[in-house]
Simulated scan of single mutants.
Amino acid sequence: ARLQHSRVWIVDPVDGTREYGEERADWAVHVGLAIDGVPTIGAVALPGHEDGIVLRTDQPRVVPPAPEKLRMVVSRTRPAPQAVAVAEALGAELVPMGSAGAKAMAVILGQADIYLHAGGQYEWDSCAPAAVALAHGLHASRIDGSPLIYNQEDTYMPDLLICRHEHADMVLGALAEIAAQAA
């Protein structure tokens, strides 16, 4: 029935279940609204963060400037080979972290500059983080640069890129070059 609706709530009550169970800080709660497939409204709570903050689409913050050496946030348990290769190509430092929401919010909070994931996720893993990132003026797309489209019959989302707009072409170019070398 959800496929027949223009507006669909996509919720992940505990993103980063492993991190939550280990009593780590890098887990999140996601509430996102996709309108006609576009991640439009959302909130990502970081209850384990020292300030217990909630980042929202209706209250965008100024994203801190990037340092000279970029930082790429990756899975702490299984970093995607593409992300590692792009980090090497860009000379970026890898920052391991738990949940998708925590990683995306790390870019907004200035703790990282690029979040590239190619290991597969589901719509609930990225809808709210993508909506919040977009509201904060960041780039959010698939790793081929195509738009993120939600409320699909198959809820599997194979990849995700969240970064500052000024880094998007550089990251997408590095991904294309790595894919060409592998072919």
Rank of each mutant, 00 (worst) to 15 (best):
R78E: 14
P79K: 08
A80I: 15
A80S: 03
P81F: 14
A83C: 05
A83L: 15
A83Q: 09
V86C: 15
A87F: 05
E88M: 08
A89D: 13
A89F: 14
L90M: 09
L90T: 01
A92Y: 02
E93L: 10
L94M: 00
M97K: 01
G98T: 03
G98N: 04
S99T: 12
S99A: 12
A100P: 03
A100K: 04
A100L: 05
A102L: 07
A102V: 14
A102I: 08
K103N: 07
M105C: 14
V107S: 05
V107L: 02
I108C: 02
A112P: 12
A112W: 00
D113K: 00
D113H: 00
Y115P: 02
H117D: 11
H117A: 10
A118Y: 12
A118K: 02
Y122T: 00
S126C: 07
P129H: 07
A130S: 08
A130L: 08
A131Q: 10
V132M: 12
V132G: 15
V132H: 03
A133G: 13
A135K: 11
H136D: 04
H136K: 10
H136N: 15
G137K: 09
L138D: 00
S141A: 15
R142G: 12
I143G: 01
I143S: 11
S146T: 13
S146V: 09
P147L: 12
P147K: 04
L148H: 08
L148V: 07
I149R: 15
Y150H: 06
Y150D: 11
Y150F: 08
N151T: 04
Q152N: 08
T155E: 15
T155I: 15
D159N: 06
D159I: 09
L160W: 09
L161Y: 02
L161W: 05
L161Q: 09
L161F: 05
R164T: 03
